[in-house]
Amino acid sequence: MKVAPTLADTTRSEFLKFRTVRATFIGLATFVVLTIGLAVLITLVIKSNWSQRPLAEKLAFDPVATSLAGVFFAQFAVGVMGARFITSEYASGAIRTTLAAVPRRVHLVLAKAIVLLITFLIASEVVVFIAFVTGQAIYKSGHLPSMSLADGTVLRAVIMAGVYLTLLTLIGFGLGLLLRTTSTTISVYVTVLLIIPIIVNFLPSSWQDHITKFLPSDLGASMLSPTSSTRSFAWVTASVVLALYTAAIVAIGTVTLVRRDA
C-alpha cells in the first residue's frame, strides 16, 4: 500500500499551481512596483515642497507612515491576487479537476491559504522594507526628519505593514471562496476598503468615532503607524481585530465551498 497524501502534498501541489501561471508574476510585479514606486514618488514630492510647509505640519509629519503609503494602493493588488487564486479556477472550470484530485475541501482551502500566507508574507515584508529604506534615504537627502529601523516602534510598524498586506491577501481569498467570480469578489473587496469608509464619513461624528476604528483601512493605519491615536485601536488590538476578520471570512468561505456543489 502506497503512502496516503497529506496536507503537505496538497500544499506542494497548490504551490506548483501558483507559480506555474504567468498572472502570478504579473500580479507580484504590479504589487512591488506600486508599493516601492509610490514610496519613491510620495517621499520625493514631500521632499520637494518641504520648505513651503507651515511649522504645524512639519511637527505632525510622520516619516514612517508617509513612506509606507503605497501599502494602501498595493492592498488592491494583493486582494485581487488572493481572490484570483480561487476565482480563476471557477472561471476556467479547473476547480472541478482540482476537487476531483482533492475531495477533502477543507484541506484544499488550508493548502491554498498556506501558499498565499507564505508567499505574500515574504513578498510583503521585502517590499515594505525596501519602500521604507528608500523613503527614509530620500528624506535624509533633503534634511527632513527621518527614522531608523533601530527604533523598536519603527521596526514594528514596518513589519506590521507587511502583515497587513498578507491579511488582506487572505481576505481577498476568503471573499473569492464565498463569491466565486472574480468580478463580484473585487467589487465587494473594493466596497469594503473604499466605499464603506466614505459612507461612514457621512454619519454623525459621535457614531464615526465608534465605527471608523473597526474599518480595515483604519486598522491598517493603526498597524503601520509608530505612534498611536486615541481615536483608533492600539496596533496590537488592530492586528488582532483584522486577523479575526480574516479568519471569519476564510471560515465562511470554507463552509460555503464544503456545502455547495462544485
Binding site: 496516503a4 502534498d9 497548490e14 506555474t20 484530485a101
Partner: peptide, 9 residues
C-alpha cells in the same frame, strides 16, 4: 499533470 500527481502522491 504534475500538480495532480503531487496532490495524490
Amino acid at each position: 499533470l504534475r500538480a495532480l500527481a503531487m496532490a495524490n502522491r
